[in-house]
Computed example of a mutant assay.
Amino acid sequence: MLENIKQDTEILLQNKERYFEFKDTAALNNIGFNSYSKNDLAEFKNRIKFDSLMKLMAKKEYPTIVFGENHNELNIYAHLLFNEGIMSIHRIPCSFQIIDDNFLVEREKEIKKYSRKKK
């Protein structure tokens, strides 16, 4: 499992052009691009003051944003980040983690921690 995570993460981090091809309709539906309009995107971007958040993220400061059960807002936020070259993954319902250089190190620690608990 960790090898798959490493491989997928390396592909994401190395793809600086952020160009990905999806062959499966289910995969396209899963990323949620059809769940909101351009107006929804612009409204959400203004409401959360996205440009200010990007300044924080440039300093590796990741602000917490609470989405509740609003999957559209979570998708919009992830897509705004993606457009700025910041990758993220969904971790649990309505939550995601930004993928940066420390992502794999954090994942390995978490997997080892839970592996020890199961023994």
Rank of each mutant, 00 (worst) to 15 (best):
L2P: 10
E3L: 11
N4G: 03
I5W: 12
I5F: 14
Q7D: 04
Q7A: 01
D8P: 06
T9P: 06
E10A: 03
E10M: 01
E10Y: 00
L12D: 01
L12V: 00
Q14D: 04
N15G: 10
N15S: 11
N15W: 05
E17F: 01
R18P: 00
Y19A: 00
Y19I: 01
Y19R: 00
Y19T: 02
E21N: 14
E21Y: 14
F22H: 08
K23A: 00
D24Y: 10
T25V: 12
A26W: 02
A27P: 03
L28V: 04
L28C: 06
N29H: 02
N29R: 04
N30D: 08
I31N: 12
G32V: 04
G32W: 01
F33L: 15
F33C: 14
S35P: 03
K38C: 02
K38T: 06
N39F: 10
D40Y: 01
A42G: 06
A42D: 15
A42I: 12
F44H: 08
F44M: 04
K45L: 07
R47P: 05
R47F: 06
R47L: 09
I48Y: 06
F50M: 08
F50T: 00
D51Q: 13
D51F: 09
S52P: 14
S52C: 10
K55I: 11
L56P: 00
L56V: 01
M57L: 04
A58S: 06
A58P: 04
K59I: 02
K60Q: 09
E61M: 07
Y62R: 01
P63S: 05
P63M: 09
T64V: 07
T64H: 14
T64R: 09
T64D: 14
I65T: 12
F67T: 05
G68I: 05
G68K: 05
E69P: 04
H71G: 14
H71M: 13
E73K: 15
L74S: 13
N75V: 10
N75Y: 10
N75T: 12
I76V: 10
Y77N: 05
Y77R: 13
A78F: 05
A78Y: 07
H79R: 07
L80C: 05
L81E: 12
L81F: 08
L81Y: 08
F82D: 11
N83R: 00
E84W: 02
G85F: 06
G85D: 12
I86R: 02
S88F: 05
I89T: 13
I89Y: 12
I89F: 01
H90L: 07
I92K: 15
I92V: 12
P93S: 11
P93A: 13
C94P: 00
S95N: 15
F96Q: 11
Q97E: 15
Q97D: 14
Q97H: 12
Q97L: 13
I98P: 04
I98M: 10
I99N: 08
I99P: 10
I99F: 11
L104E: 11
V105L: 05
V105K: 03
E106Q: 04
R107L: 03
R107C: 10
E108Q: 01
E108D: 04
K109S: 15
K109V: 15
E110H: 09
E110A: 08
I111H: 07
I111F: 05
K112N: 14
K112A: 07
Y114L: 14
R116G: 00
K118R: 15
K119H: 13
K119T: 13
